[in-house]
């Protein structure tokens, strides 16, 4: 079995005296999509932020294997290293696209920023890359000079994805990527994400409260409740034969269409 691309051991985090997550360990292998499901307050977003290096856990370790390297502890990396990773090998798709975009610059500049940040200095090439990625996320290339605030919610979310993927990251973190979007828009976005993950061979950690999204995107699932992992396993196993009482409750609560 291949080496994990991301690993965490005994992650525990407190906000003051409030326990957010406790004793969480997991491995993510290249090409896998891990879904983290749970209801509000389960600690899933906290865990995601810790895995993405945005939050330092009260206890526990997170390790990431850089391209061609072996697992390196995040807290042994310098801040510049982590900030560079966040712009190159990692991607973070926020629930609200406004948190992941620069609203005051054009779509093309949004996509090109990461390239410029790593030293690209050819305007023509940067623009061509922006056009390419707009097409990949099914946004009309004519809108390259438009501001994101003129885009619909679904388009903003797709722009956020394009902005993140332009540097060919290997690991994508997603926080409720379809939250707040209309159902038809969700379907299109999920299809896009699914396709991109497959064709680009991405590894991903997706936080969602929507089990259908989890089923569609992830190959493995962990179920969180009250900051703890109550069940983890293959997606089809957790959703078709949940073992833990809370998992059974979650699965049985979904309304059938």
């Amino acid at each position: 079995m291949s080496e994990p691309i991301l690993r965490c051991r005994e992650i525990t985090h407190y906000y003051g005296r409030q326990m957010a997550c406790q004793n969480i360990s997991l491995d993510l292998h290249p090409g896998e999509v891990l879904g983290i499901v749970g209801e509000s307050g389960s600690g899933k977003t906290t865990l995601l932020k810790i895995l993405a290096g945005q939050l330092k856990p009260t206890d526990g370790i997170v390790a990431f294997a850089k391209e061609g390297g072996s697992l390196t502890l995040l807290h042994e990396m310098s801040e510049p290293e982590i900030r560079l990773l966040a712009r190159t090998e990692w991607a973070f798709v926020h629930q609200n696209p406004r948190d992941g975009l620069r609203m005051s610059v054009s779509a093309g500049a949004n996509i090109g920023e990461r390239l410029m940040a790593i030293g690209d200095r050819h305007y023509g090439n940067i623009r061509a890359a922006a056009v390419h990625w707009l097409k990949q996320v099914e946004i009309d290339a004519e809108r390259i000079d438009d501001l994101p605030r003129t885009f619909s919610g679904g388009m903003q979310q797709r722009l956020q994805i394009a902005r993140n993927l332009v540097t060919s990251p290997r690991l994508v973190f997603m926080d409720e990527p379809t939250g707040g979007l209309d159902v038809s828009v969700q379907a299109r976005l999920l299809d896009l994400i699914r396709g991109l993950v497959r064709t680009l061979g991405l590894s991903a950690v997706v936080v969602t409260h929507d089990l259908a999204v989890a089923r569609l995107l992830s190959s493995r699932l962990i179920v969180m409740q009250g900051g703890k992992v109550v069940e983890s396993g293959l997606t089809d196993q957790v959703l078709e034969d949940p073992q833990a009482p809370y998992s059974q409750l979650l699965v049985s609560s979904i309304l059938q269409v």
Partner: peptide
């Protein structure tokens, strides 16, 4: 087996 193994 690990879920990752089963996927393989």
């Amino acid at each position: 087996a690990d879920p990752s193994e089963i996927i393989a």
